[in-house]
Structure formats: C-alpha cells, structure tokens
Design a protein around this nucleic acid. Structure first.
Lengths: 125, 125, 125, 125
DNA sequence: GTGGTCTAGACCACG
DNA sequence: GTGGTCTAGACCACG
C-alpha cells in the first residue's frame, strides 16, 4: 500500500507522512482504521523503525492519527483538519498557476489542462 | 530584486536558483542580461560567495545561464529549456489536482478556484 | 585504490570523478558496490571532505552513483551511460587522429601504433 | 582563421595556442609566416590583447614562434618540435585506447573506428 | 575584478 | 554515522 523510494532526496519519514495523509484525503484510510505498528510498518517498508516512529509522531502532531494504549495507532482526524489540508493544497497550486500565466499561458489553456487531468480520473470518482 | 529567507528550510542556493529561473520565465530576465558577479550578488543578499557560486553553477548546468570569459555571467537559455520547465510545472500541479478530486471537490469547483487565481492577476498580463 | 595528485593542474574532485568512472568502465566497480563514505574517502585520500562530496555529487548528477538513505553511496548506472561514455572517448580520440594524419602520418602508421598499445595490454584482458 | 569560444571552459589563450599549433602541424602555417600583431589578432578575435600576448609568449616558450624586432612575430620551429608534439598526441591517445579496451571493445573494433576516421579525411590529404 | 577550487570547521536533518 | 549546506577565508588562473 505504501511505496518508499530510498533513492529520493525527500526524507523517508516525509514520504510516509505524505502517503498516509493522501490515503486519508482520498478516503482509503478512514477514522478508526488501525495502522500497522511501528515495527511491522518498518519491516513492510524495509526501513528503520525510528523513521516510522518519526512519521507517526508527525502525523499525531498534525491531528491525523492517535495512539491508543493497548490498541495501537489509529486514524483519527476531524473534517477541519481535512479542510485545512485542502486549502494547503490550493496554496501549493497558486504559485504554480501564477508562473504558467507569466510564462504566457492563457487562462483558457490552463483551464483546459486542468480539465484534462480531471477527465482522466473520470470514472473512478 | 532577489529575496532570500535564511530561516527557510529550503537551502539558500536553491532559493536563488528558483528565483532566477522564475525571473526568466516571467520575462524579467532576458537572454544576454548580465547577472551581478558572484561577489556582488553575495553582498547584495548578505550570504557567502560560495553559496552564490553554487547557485550559478547549478543554473549553468541547467542551461539557463552561461559564463563568458572576461565578461561575467549572463542569462543564456533557449526556448526548449523554458518549455521543459513549463511541463515540469504541470507535472507538479497534476498530483495536487488529483488530490483535490479525491477529497471530493468537483471539477467545476477546482476550475473556479483556478479562474479566481488567474483573474486576480488580470490587468498585469 | 584511488590516486590523487595534489600538484596536478587538474582539480582534485575531477581526478576522483574520473577515477571512479574509469573503475566502472573497467569493471572494477560494479552496480550496488558501496563506495566509502565521504568522510572515509576524504581521510583515505588526505583531502577535505567537501572535495569528496563535490566529486560524489557530480557523479550522482551524471547517473553513475546514487545516494541511498540510511545506507550510503553506491554505484548505480545503466549501460546507456556507459555507452555514452564510450562514444565520448571516441570523440576525444578523433581530433587527435586527425592531427596525426595532417602531420603526415599514414593510416597504416597510426593503426600500428594503436595495435602496439592494444598488444601491450594483451594478456590482462 | 581562428575560432575562439568565450563560453568554453578552456582558457582563451590556450585555445589560441592550440589552434596555432594545429595550424603548424597541419601545414597551414609554415616557417617564416607572419602572424598578426598582438593588437590585430586581439581585434580579430574580439578578445583582450593581454590574452593574445600570453598565447604568443607560450608559443615562443615552446619554440613554435619567434618575435623579430622590427618585423613582428613569425612562425619559427624545427622538426624536432613537431616530432615531440606528435609523440605528445600519441600519449594522449594511449589512455583513451586503454579505456576502450577495458570497456570491452576488441582491438579489431577499435582499429575499425580509427580507419573510419582516416577514411573520412581521405581525399584532402 | 572574475569565477573556480580548496580547506577547516561548523551545524543540521536523517536514520 | 551519514550526506547536505553554509561560512570564512584563502589561493589561483584568467583577462
């Protein structure tokens, strides 16, 4: 379910944080879903347990998961968190669109590209 | 003209690379424009000359600038480079749009957001 | 295994890049071989770690080595890279042969010299 | 007659030295041929006169040219110099051929490539 | 003055 | 421990 690229220049723990968040946003991971323990996840991914622990801590700090004594780590977020995340995504898109405009692309051209991306996803949603 | 944020977690040399590339894409920097010398740029930005040199070397490697013996460093790129950069921008936008879709946003909502961004730039372009 | 000549007018980092590439071409270094860490290599060669780091980064940029998080730096290339390198060698030989011809050497004389070089290597290959 | 590439990482004075030496080896420049004055050459090439002067000094040091009071700078070499240069060319070719061998090329393959280069020159010689 | 290279030494994130 | 980044400062070739 999770793919780690040890050759990437992006830290492993960040890759894991991002993938779990994406799983939540996409709906693959729902509230109360149990995540693999740090050790199991580390073995699954072939990485150091410290690295998984760091990712889980970061996710807990962000209010996406929670550690429940005697149970393990579960997905636990509220919609505010997700909304905040969506607006964070828009914040990432904005400067990129601005750059396209400056590069001479028209609004129409940009919209068309976006539409194409959405259409490619089409049926799945 | 260039802003460096030494507190950012993004390396200084990368910030400079990105800002010069953005200047080129936006058209502020044109072919044959002379860049400040490594030393002058370093003083302007308040950073070490080595850091500026690293940025300039990276830009030269990317085919954006060129070192001319006895003259200094100039902007020197061809449109292929810029086209490649535009498609790199689209590649960054794509996964973000995908995430918005998965999060439940409709194509229409996304398009509207993009339009809003473009309209805000409106008159300048 | 590696020899650095600090008196050479060729930069140290370039000497190291070249020797590692030669090691790959000659087959001494194979894919997934672990290179000494930047620090160890620096001590071995008696040079500054920054200099070794610069060489490693250049090799990574060229697609000869890769940095694996939590493991270190390994040889990692594909044959395309090697083929490209061989054709680069031929490109270096060409103008030299041309010069010999212009200097009055006959094709036969040149071939004989080349043969002599090959024969001297003889048994080792 | 001479081409200088100010974007090259090879110093301009070296480029000029090399091209004049090549001219001599190829026979375009013969003993007692008059070279343009430092100033004229500098203007022709669009470079700094100091740079041309440096090249001429280097050539004089190598015994290829001579400065004659009241006459200017002339080509002036003896065949020993040329012979030495030819052997210097062979010294450059040798490690390249060695590398090809190590890369798995057979002697025959290498010879064929060399022949191809010589044949392409064919008629001119 | 200009860029290129190198050293010594430091700090940091990552694993 | 590992590589990445940065500074301060130096030296050098080049033009």
């Amino acid at each position: 379910m999770f793919n780690i690229d040890v050759r990437s220049n992006k830290p492993i723990y960040e890759q894991l944080v991002e993938q779990i968040k994406t799983g939540v946003i996409k709906g693959y991971l729902k509230n109360d879903d149990l995540l693999p323990s740090v050790r199991k996840m580390a073995i699954n991914l072939g990485v150091n347990p410290n690295t998984v622990a760091k990712a889980y801590q970061e996710l807990e700090r962000q209010g996406i998961i929670a550690t429940i004594r005697g149970k393990g780590t579960i997905i636990s977020y509220n919609n505010q968190i997700i909304e905040k995340d969506i607006s964070r995504i828009m914040d990432k898109i904005k400067p990129l669109v601005v750059e396209l405009k400056y590069a001479g692309k028209t609004t129409e051209e940009i919209i068309n590209e976006i539409k194409k991306i959405c259409d490619d996803l089409g049926g799945n949603l």
